[in-house]
């Protein structure tokens, strides 16, 4: 379980995040949506412990793996990129091969990761996260650079990982289709505040706020 209370993050004079209370349970997939600058990435970074909030607390004893929006492939082969990210395990090579195949990177395994395309890079970055077993996956726009096929691979890999480990998934996305496809819960952020939080079908039919209605009306489903 992850519990956030009275979270505030301020950059300069701008409050980018202002959340009274929010919690995530292991096993649920939560999509965080909202326009650019609404605080989605900042929220994920605070949840993952990458940055600290200026006010408030994050209570958790869960093991989390976080995928940032900007992915840097390490200066190594694709295979070594996965292996270096893996914590000690007996079946390292087997698991690495599984992940590579799942993400369509098997034929690139021995290539230098610096030569990958943006979409391939993103799949590799996800592979580095999925090779470990955590209680929560915190994913910042995991398929923003991927094509249709790549997006499908990424979504399937996340689903498979979740089914296998029973972990929770917290992800941001600009794709309403992805949010509806993967998530059991959707949180809408606007100017750093939560404006909607509920089951996707509820939000689609009956958003609680005017802002939510307006935002959903722009979704092309």
């Amino acid at each position: 379980m992850i519990k956030l209370q009275n979270i505030k993050k301020i950059y300069g004079e701008r409050t980018v995040l202002n959340i009274d209370g929010l919690s995530f349970t292991k096993g649920e997939t939560v999509a965080i949506v909202g326009p650019n600058g609404s605080g989605k990435s900042t929220l994920l970074k605070i949840i993952a412990g990458v940055i600290k909030s200026d006010e408030g607390t994050v209570e958790t004893n869960s093991r989390m793996y976080y995928l940032p929006q900007q992915n840097i492939p390490f200066r190594k082969s694709v295979r070594k990129n996965i292996l270096i990210s893996m914590e000690n395990a007996d079946d390292k090579e087997i698991r690495c091969n599984e992940i590579l195949a799942e993400l369509g990177l098997a034929n690139l395994a021995d290539k230098n990761a610096k030569g990958l395309s943006g979409g391939e890079c993103q799949r590799l970055a996800l592979g580095r996260v999925l090779i470990n077993e955590g209680d929560f996956l915190v994913l910042d726009e995991p398929s923003s650079a991927a094509d249709i096929e790549g997006t499908e691979m990424i979504e399937n890999a996340i689903r498979k990982y979740k089914d296998k480990t029973g972990c929770g998934v917290i992800m941001t996305t600009h794709s309403p289709v992805q949010a509806l496809k993967l998530a059991e819960r959707v949180i809408m952020l606007c100017d750093g505040k939560i404006v909607e939080d509920g089951r996707p079908e509820e939000l689609l039919i009956n958003p609680k706020t005017q802002w939510g209605k307006k935002f959903i009306s722009k979704w092309k489903l």
Partner: peptide, 27 residues
């Protein structure tokens, strides 16, 4: 120049401080 991204990635993968420093040097 690229430390912020690298550190974010390393933190996300729960790398130790030592492993992060080695990563910075090798990268």
């Amino acid at each position: 120049v690229n430390s912020a991204c690298l550190i974010e990635t390393a933190k996300g993968l729960n790398f130790s401080k030592g492993k992060t420093a080695i990563l910075m040097l090798t990268e």
